[in-house]
């Protein structure tokens, strides 16, 4: 199989997802100890929605990011196709 090269926006989109996911992790940890901080919860929900949209955009173009039902699949079955995360 020809060595497929990835377009630039593959990396841009992936980095944006990574940025949002990191912020969500931080907010999640914060909310664990501050359960009634409404501002943080609103921020968490907006970032969750944004991250979901970005992931959907990414998956429509580049295939599933996750398996076991956390991502829709393309046809043919593709979640185990390269590039894997360490190859990106």
């Amino acid at each position: 199989m020809a060595n497929k090269t990835l377009p630039d926006d593959y990396y841009q989109l992936l980095e944006e997802i990574q940025i949002l996911d990191f912020t969500l992790v931080e907010l999640n940890l914060y909310l664990d100890t501050h359960p009634d901080d409404l501002e943080a919860i609103k921020q968490f929900n907006t970032y969750t929605r944004k991250a979901k949209e970005l992931r959907q955009q990414f998956e429509e173009r580049f295939g599933p990011l996750m398996h076991f039902g956390h991502s829709y699949s393309t046809h043919p079955w593709a979640w185990n196709e390269p590039p894997w995360p360490w190859q990106v």
Binding site: Q18, I19, F22, T23, E26, H34, D37, E39, A40
Partner: peptide, 12 residues
């Protein structure tokens, strides 16, 4: 609560 935050790209 309400502590100052880095913008997300910088936070990463």
């Amino acid at each position: 609560p309400g502590l100052e935050q880095f913008p997300p790209p910088e936070a990463l």
